[in-house]
Design a protein around this nucleic acid. Sequence first.
DNA 1: CGCCGAGTTGATCAGGCTCAACAAATGTGG
DNA 2: CCACATTTGTTGAGCCTGATCAACTCGGCG
Lengths: 242, 242
Amino acid sequence: MPDDVGTIGLLAGLAPDIAADLLGQAQRRTVCADEVLFTAGEPARSVHVLASGAVKLVQTTPDGAKVIVKYVRPGEIFGSPALLDKFYPTNAIAVTECAELQWPSELMRTFIERHPRVALNVIGDLEERLREMEGRLRDLSKEPVEHRLARAILKLVGTFGRQAGDGVEIPFPVGRQDLADLIGSTLPTVSRTLRAWETQRQIRRHRRRLVIADVEAVARVLYEETPPEPKPRRSHRRAARR
Amino acid sequence: MPDDVGTIGLLAGLAPDIAADLLGQAQRRTVCADEVLFTAGEPARSVHVLASGAVKLVQTTPDGAKVIVKYVRPGEIFGSPALLDKFYPTNAIAVTECAELQWPSELMRTFIERHPRVALNVIGDLEERLREMEGRLRDLSKEPVEHRLARAILKLVGTFGRQAGDGVEIPFPVGRQDLADLIGSTLPTVSRTLRAWETQRQIRRHRRRLVIADVEAVARVLYEETPPEPKPRRSHRRAARR
DNA sequence: CGCCGAGTTGATCAGGCTCAACAAATGTGG
DNA sequence: CCACATTTGTTGAGCCTGATCAACTCGGCG
């Protein structure tokens, strides 16, 4: 499988030879779907960059509830706690066959010593993730399931979507339970909502994968007040307060 | 007001003279309670460290809903998007009179160039915030309001609590609405819960401030199954699924 | 062909949000 | 120092979203 790294965030702004040097020191590893890259609580010994495929970062609470913290896309950094010799805070699970690059934390630190730009790149990545989390926090407290689901799907489309015949395909299996864990809901609820969209031909399923036939229609869910409903009952959007 | 910075995370691990150098280049600014340090969307021109007091980072959605992303404590870094010449993602509002240090982004970057350790410190800080957000995300999707509230209060106690006569005091005003914005709930709900605890003498209010009389009792909320309820109905905790 | 995990769907129910009116606390000006 | 204005908190009633429980179906796979 070829690496389909668009741009590796970690290498941004480095002189080509420097970037090559850093790349040269990476350990490359390929794993197959569902394999675990690292587990929560384990000491973080290296910084990772996904080269191809997709990885999900999952937190599991002691009582068994799961939260999908993030889907990692090629080029992204993950496992950065290694830089500080901390522990991985989440489990990383491959959702497709994928390839990753690893740098032992010690090595990465000395490299940063010489090329601080790399540190800035890490900071940029973390900053972006923080923004993302802030957004999800907001959604989770103020948005109804339907919107959160639409947003989650749109995000997947934007990040991993591949043009596929009529529609955009998410190129790895995403189950109802996965979506539920992603938006903080439950399988039955997600199933119902998705089913509705399926019958409206906005989405479809093709061999375990999610296909979004009409991306705009899904996006529209976020804006419409309650048009698909014939009965004129009031909107239930959480209200503002000033 | 004296700076009550325990340890400035940004300076961790630096030689004393280097740390002094960096400190020397900071701009110091004091603001009074409720003053705005920066606003969301504004270009981030400097990296901030809180020297004393407390600051809240608040996101406001277009429809007026608010989310308190974080309470910043003395010594913490905030406004780090400046390093990448981004925009501030949140509003920063002083909740007490406070003092902050600022470094123009350009200056901070060149300093990092010379002392990459500073970048690692920033990374550490971001990493910690990311952990915090992950935790809140989990709570928000799986925990009932009562637990989230208890956790939020315990966190405030741990971060800002001051011993005060009988109990621990949060040394700045925290309204019901603030707590609601912090845990993703609403004022009436928070009020009810807090009222219950107040009558059980676990917490109290003293001139706009929150006083936790019995911290352990609040912590116990997180573990008890439903003991205050005489009727033996089953627990309603969100269940696991494997 | 029958098993198994994943998805569907119905019924039920409650946590907590909404609305709304009232009470308390804080602040202001006289 | 008191009366009023304003903000903040309290409390009740009703109702809706979405969780829970549970039974059934479907699609692959051995």
